[in-house]
Computed example of a mutant assay.
Amino acid sequence: MAVSAIKHLERMRGSKVTCEEYHRLTMMQQALNLQDDDAVWMLFLAMEYQKAYYEQLPKKITDSTSELLKRVRETADREAANAQNRLIQSVIEQTEKLTARVHIVPLMPIYLLIILCLMTFGSVSYWAGLNAGLGRPLPLETILSIPAGTVLGGMTLTAIAFCLGVAFWKIAYYQKGWLVPMVAALGLGGVMFAMSRFY
């Protein structure tokens, strides 16, 4: 086979002709009785180029598919990581909200007790000031007749209702810790009863 034909084929393909391809082309030339300068060689060279191209095509498809799958996998992993981070953040936020709600119920009696103590201190201080100003002792029930005492009585009733509500709610749902709010409600009720007896 002519060297110029081989060089032409190698230039078209961009790669060297293998021994197998050389023998196949030589056998074709001999079987068809083609001369080295025959124009039919151009047709065979084009067919040989197409054959080599389609033989390499599966590898090119595999490489392209692998690259595409790699990019898809990286994108999916990145999106999964972002979704996981968003989920973790959401769980943290919901846990913080739930924790705040859970702590409100046990802390509410303490807040009410602090307010009641402050109101009681203010009422008693006002009552003591009246006693000192008048120069004579006033009856204890006058605490309830002053504005702070009226507010104190209303807040005490609110605290009793709240403590009873918490206690009954815990009893209804078979939860522990119902005894403390029940005792607090009864204790505040006893204080209110004692004050009303004096009034």
Score class of each variant (00 low, 15 high):
M27S: 12
M47R: 11
H8A: 15
M47V: 04
A31T: 10
Q84N: 14
L34D: 06
Q94W: 01
K60G: 01
T26G: 06
W41H: 13
L68M: 10
T62I: 00
S4M: 03
T18Y: 03
A31E: 09
M47N: 13
L34R: 05
L9R: 14
L57G: 06
S66A: 08
E67C: 04
W41I: 11
A5M: 14
E10Y: 05
M28Q: 05
D37I: 00
D63H: 07
L57K: 13
E55W: 03
I6V: 14
E96R: 02
Q56N: 10
K70T: 12
T18G: 15
A39K: 06
S4L: 08
A52F: 05
E20L: 09
M47G: 09
T75H: 00
G14L: 02
D63N: 07
N85G: 10
Q94N: 10
L57R: 12
I92Q: 06
Q35K: 11
L98Q: 14
I88N: 15
W41Y: 09
Q56F: 01
L43K: 05
F44M: 11
A81I: 00
E21K: 07
M12I: 05
R71S: 14
E55F: 03
S66G: 12
Q94E: 11
S90W: 03
E96D: 07
H8P: 02
D36P: 14
C19Q: 12
S64P: 00
D36L: 02
A83W: 00
E48C: 09
E21D: 10
M47T: 01
A83P: 00
L9W: 15
D38I: 00
S4A: 12
V3T: 04
M28Y: 06
E55Q: 13
E93N: 11
K7P: 05
R78Y: 02
M47F: 01
Q35I: 02
N85L: 10
V40C: 10
D77P: 00
V40E: 11
A46S: 14
L45N: 09
A52K: 05
K51P: 06
S4H: 09
R11L: 10
V91F: 05
L34F: 06
K7R: 13
D37S: 06
D77N: 07
Y22S: 08
K97L: 08
L57E: 12
Q50T: 07
L57H: 11
A80Y: 04
R73C: 06
E74A: 15
S90D: 14
S66N: 14
Y49C: 08
Q29F: 05
L68W: 09
D63M: 06
H8E: 15
Q35G: 10
E96V: 03
E10A: 13
K51F: 13
